[in-house]
Design a protein around this nucleic acid. Sequence first.
DNA 1: TAGATTGTTAATCGATTAACAATC
DNA 2: TAGATTGTTAATCGATTAACAATC
Lengths: 208, 208
Amino acid sequence: MPRDKVPNAVVQRLPGYYRYLTILEEIGLVRISSQQLGERMGLTASQIRQDINCFGGFGQQGYGYNVSELRARIGEILGLTRAYRMVIIGAGNIGQAISNYQSFRDMRFEAEALFDISEEIVGRKVGDLFVFPLDALADYLANNAIDIGIITTPKSAAQPVCDMLVEGNVKAIWNFAPVDLSVPEGVSLKSVHLSDALLVLSYHMTNG
Amino acid sequence: MPRDKVPNAVVQRLPGYYRYLTILEEIGLVRISSQQLGERMGLTASQIRQDINCFGGFGQQGYGYNVSELRARIGEILGLTRAYRMVIIGAGNIGQAISNYQSFRDMRFEAEALFDISEEIVGRKVGDLFVFPLDALADYLANNAIDIGIITTPKSAAQPVCDMLVEGNVKAIWNFAPVDLSVPEGVSLKSVHLSDALLVLSYHMTNG
DNA sequence: TAGATTGTTAATCGATTAACAATC
DNA sequence: TAGATTGTTAATCGATTAACAATC
């Protein structure tokens, strides 16, 4: 039912919808109109109806949307109907932070192993996860169907690690190293440049 | 020279320009054309010229752009001509990761103190930073001109902490708690919802 | 039924791309 | 000078908003 050229702008907003609808469901709200949802999320009612209608009519005229149903549908569209297995390469601060992030687990994005090259940390545990040597990564990927590889290594290691992940049939890569990686067609890649946000803040502090 | 209604899309790309130009300068490249820069960054030459011309003509016909000069100009526009003082509220994994992030320091975004409520961590050091009790935040802000407050607390604490930061005259807030905060006019706010990126990845893995 | 609100088409706005004269 | 590449205007594309008939 999805597909059919969903505009990129809409895809980027889906996680926000899911987040808000989860909160609304938690507080026990049963129905909501595009108008009300728009006020909370800072979008126009019109835009919300347009967005949702990319995927078919989940609403009911004169009533609005059923919160739980809409949340469930958007969850399906986002692919949240199954668990995702993840490994993290780089057991530094960011790697550790991500491995412990509760909200990922709540949505069944499950980090199951850390890999690093540092003698100091290999063999230890971080939270409940073992830290394996990087040398063991290829084998691990060969024996486990990992969906997502998360790269939190320094710059220089990022592309080689990325290649190992691709070789090991990972379907998506989430990169925190401040480099732009190249992946073959068919592998999804999302790079996070944390400092970009700081630069936008300093831009706004400086100008207007 | 800046201002004059710089489109938001352009502002969002400025950190990327700065990042690429820094790399190009490091490898010793002296000049670059919009064509070449576009190939590296995955943008069209036309877009690059449009973007740069929001701020005035830094290029030279028949030659292109001087890498160092263009980088310096964009740095100025982004407000990187001075240091920014930062505090981090929440000394958990993410707070610690951010306090240690070398690339922030390189651009003179300087975290100088952590605050937390946990007895266990208050009074300790994380890297070179002291962890102060949250109670000490108001005083600290009164006695130090802090530019940026970074919130890495749990959800429930985020809005109260945000209010304290605003009260203490912080100019910008960078929020990692998974809530949408409200700040008065004049304070910049950037919320990072880390898991959104995972959801976009699972969307792409699921659909096409 | 009458009132409310969706689904959807049309109008507007903003951002990207194309084109080319200006000029180094 | 001739060649290259910018700065800038015009054309296209995509995304947002407005409007309203369909319908619950």
